[in-house]
């Protein structure tokens, strides 16, 4: 089975990211890594591909983004595609989806596209659906388990109450949750082998996209910090408590 995994290189996943003057994350000149959420989709892909399948990792981003591909390749991925183009700076979700969909289309004979549920930096959680739409493929989100049997995709889709069992034809786009698996740690052998694996670097024009296709239609106008949570009220008197709770719930129109 041939699987394409959409991966993202994010700045400083364990620290506090910095914002630039354009109200966007500073992505250049800072330490970064493969988005920890994407490690789960890479792991899922490696397990599904088995010994005869192929896992292709695709990313879009500045030069350092190649680090995300390297990490995925050192885990066991087979090849990487990096879309690197100055015109993509400030790309919004739709532009990113157009670019990634264009890369996926070029992968002959792919069976499945996997992605994380949402990125750890931007958190829009909408990119995989946009890619599926542009490719005209079915999309299953929040997969906590992915299997393929007789050419059909079987997914356990995480819900708030439990999970849904979803079946869909291939190819499809699936987002994988962090609960789906334990990603492997790259071994030294895997890290050294990754250096020899094929890596393509493509520009927007290589993908046959026009300047208009990659023009962002969204602009971040400003940023406001989230208001700090106010301290809660503690009622210590057991006599008083039931009445006060009822009063609170009534006021909140819960009861």
């Amino acid at each position: 089975m041939n699987i394409v995994v959409l991966v993202k290189y994010i700045p400083n996943p364990e620290g506090t990211p910095e914002m630039g003057p354009d109200h966007r994350l500073k992505r250049e000149g800072v330490e970064g890594a493969l988005d920890p959420g994407d490690e789960h989709s890479v792991e899922a892909a490696l397990q599904l591909a088995g010994s005869d399948g192929e896992v292709t990792l695709v990313t879009m981003g500045p030069e350092a983004a190649v680090g995300a591909l390297r990490r995925g390749l050192s885990m066991g991925g087979h090849k990487g595609v990096h879309v690197l183009d100055d015109s993509l700076k400030g790309a919004d979700v739709l532009v990113t989806a157009r670019v990634l969909a264009a890369v996926v289309k070029r992968q002959a004979g792919f069976d499945l596209v996997l992605a994380g549920v949402e990125s750890t930096d931007g958190y829009t959680g909408t990119l995989p659906m946009a890619v599926a739409e542009l490719l005209d493929l079915p999309n299953v989100t929040f997969a906590r388990k992915v299997e393929v049997a007789d050419g059909t995709l079987k997914v356990e889709r995480q819900t708030e109450a439990g999970y849904d069992e979803v079946e869909c034809p291939l190819p499809a786009v699936v987002t994988v949750t962090a609960g789906a698996n334990e990603p492997r740690y790259p071994t030294l052998k895997g890290i050294m082998q990754a250096k020899q694996k094929p890596m393509d670097t493509l520009s927007v024009s290589d993908l046959g996209l026009s300047a208009e296709d990659v023009k962002a239609t969204q602009e971040v106008m400003g940023l406001e910090p989230v208001a700090a949570k106010e301290a809660g009220e503690v009622i210590e008197d057991p006599e008083e408590a039931p009445g006060r709770v009822v009063e609170f719930l009534t006021k909140a129109k819960v009861i």
Binding site: A33, R70, R71, S74, Y185, P186, T187, L188, I191, M192, K195
Partner: peptide, 8 residues
């Protein structure tokens, strides 16, 4: 590559 191993 040593630093990648360090992360692992």
């Amino acid at each position: 590559e040593h630093e990648q191993l360090r992360r692992s």
